[in-house]
Design a protein around this nucleic acid. Structure first.
Lengths: 335, 335
DNA sequence: CCTCGATGTTGAAACGTTTTAACGGCTGAG
DNA sequence: CTCAGCCGTTAAAACGTTTCAACATCGAGG
């Protein structure tokens, strides 16, 4: 390892004081062109890299925000992240992505680290409801895709109850009366809300709550969708639902795959509706009907709220977007 | 904002010196249980959060590594990241993900920031070949999915030439003699290598190089795959290739989608082979034949090489994995 | 009763920046 | 020739930790 060249080494090499070097780095205009050149040359020659820890310790600010996602492999979150990053970089901030992988231990560790790092702000889609654990530690936190229950911080979400309602209403209108809802774990707020919406749709249509079979999954990933598919096919056909509403597109894609493998046809044997409308939904084996959320906008708005957090008289706001049903072949009208 | 409580405030509150508080934080066993309790109580009461900048400035190490990916929305990279994270967390390090989005400006900015942050190490899948720009700045860097040309650092890759050869050999064996390769931009090493493999396959089979029509795309994303599909269909059917080898699965999925929309059948009108074998490939409209890479293992190995970088007499290593062809319906034998 | 080692605690010196107030030299006006 | 004002530069004081050598205190062994 090299003996770590610091600002003083550069200063000595250039024959100036360290304050001047600092000025070259932070206010280039204030130092005479000739001196500036000399300093830049010294920096290049010595391969100096400014120590951000020291800078931040003294200066206070960190030029970084972080987004803690529930599942980095879910395109929904990477799309949201794109929106976040666009807004962040307009404000001159870098974005670090952290993956909690739906594990609240990891989530806690990352939050702790980020607080200690004194990042400018944290965006998070929390693992479970008791976001109390995201105690206020001085760093602004904005919830993404989850409503702040106690109004102690900003949040940006999409109306998941409405989304669930749209999906199931659509299924009812296309003639289904035995519907499965696939999703879980129930500790996830989105799953609960979408289910509530589904139940509301039944009520609106005058159907009993029993018309909805809830099939709980361990996660919201493709593999669990396949599992659910196998369980579904195992049911006696008299009791088997004729349609399935999945809590997200990954589950729906897994379900679809499992249907095909087992020789059932979508939508004839089972209509399927997903949630999120990720890019792959339209390219699926049977193009997927899905509930679309404004993903980039969600991220962008969240980042903007976060940045506004430092303004003098800031009031916490909650922004809620409306989802939209996109009908495709996987739920074509029953003939 | 709260007036930022520091270690001395805690010390005062607990009636000890700041050194003792530091000990509680870093070597709890060395301080008497009674004192420790008192300090912990003070920490909780004051809501103290250790300032990582100061810690790192003094202690030197940062407990963080970073992975700069080419495209956070590409499941291939998030799968690699999963492997990286597993290995990192076994070593007690956190992982920050940075998305260069195939933009070398962003890539440079992130690298600069990470160097300044003095992260323990950087993994990167660089945007373009001249990885010279990733100059040695004192932080260990390991290349992922790209071979280090000059042996100045470790790298982990998969044999892309072989992968391209496998794919195109398969197409030739299933009876195709006019083959398109879809991919780009050519600045990306992987694209060049896979093309080289494709050409080698032709040569092996005694076919002329003209049997391969190269269709360059602007990126490796789904949308570009759709564009390529439209261009392909626009060709006079006498000259139109009967098979397409795509540089990655995203392109292949886009191509597939475009074929379906335009009323062409896969594999009858056009056989399609992708690359990466991401999870969505198997769930596609027509299950996708693809070249599988050991994604998690790639990430895990890269992280291990990075961690080994600090060992006393370290020699840079290059690890190369073998890809594997997975045949599915999109390239079923021509009848 | 003295010494010694073990155990817990502490004061003070780093770590590498940024920042502020002060400084010297120079220019141009009087 | 003097002096006010400006410009570029600098010395020194932070920032909040960790660490190290030194210092009490105490019990046990001689």
């Amino acid at each position: 390892m090299k003996p770590s060249v610091g600002i003083r080494d550069v200063a000595q090499q250039a024959g100036v004081s360290n304050a001047t070097v600092s000025n070259v780095l932070n206010r280039p205009d204030v130092v005479a062109p000739a001196t500036r050149q000399r300093v830049l040359a010294a920096i290049a020659e010595l391969g100096f890299v400014r120590n951000e820890s020291a800078r931040q310790l003294r200066a206070g600010s960190s030029r970084v925000i972080a987004y803690v996602v529930l599942d980095a492999a879910n395109p929904f979150f990477t799309d949201v992240a794109r929106g976040v990053e666009d807004a962040a970089r307009e404000a001159g901030l870098a974005l670090f992505l952290c993956n909690s992988a739906s594990d609240d231990g990891r989530e806690r560790e990352y939050l702790e680290l980020l607080h200690e790092q004194r990042v400018e702000g944290i965006l998070i889609t929390p693992v479970d409801a008791q976001s109390a654990q995201i105690a206020d530690r001085g760093t602004p936190v904005v919830l993404v895709d989850r409503e702040s229950t106690d109004g102690t911080r900003c949040s940006v979400a999409v109306d998941d109850v409405l989304g669930g309602e749209l999906a199931v209403t659509h299924l009812i209108e296309t003639g289904h009366t035995r519907i499965a809802m696939v999703g879980g774990p129930m500790s996830i707020q989105q799953v609960r809300d979408r289910r509530e919406g589904a139940l509301r749709a039944l009520a609106n249509a005058g159907l009993p709550a029993e018309a909805l079979t809830f099939m709980e999954t361990k996660s919201l990933q493709v593999g669990e969708g396949r599992n659910a598919g196998e369980r579904l096919v195992g049911l006696p056909s008299s009791r088997r639902p004729t349609a399935a509403f999945c809590a997200n597109d990954l589950l729906a894609l897994g379900l679809l795959q499992s249907m095909t493998q087992q020789g059932l046809r979508v939508p004839d044997d089972l209509a399927v509706v997903g949630y999120d409308d990720i890019e792959f939904a339209a390219a699926a084996a049977v193009p997927l009907t899905s509930v679309r959320q404004p993903r980039e906008q969600l991220g962008r708005t969240a980042a903007q709220l976060l940045l506004a957090e430092n303004e003098p008289d800031h009031e916490h706001r909650h922004v809620k977007f409306q989802p939209e049903l996109v009908v495709r072949a996987s739920s074509a009208v029953k003939r």
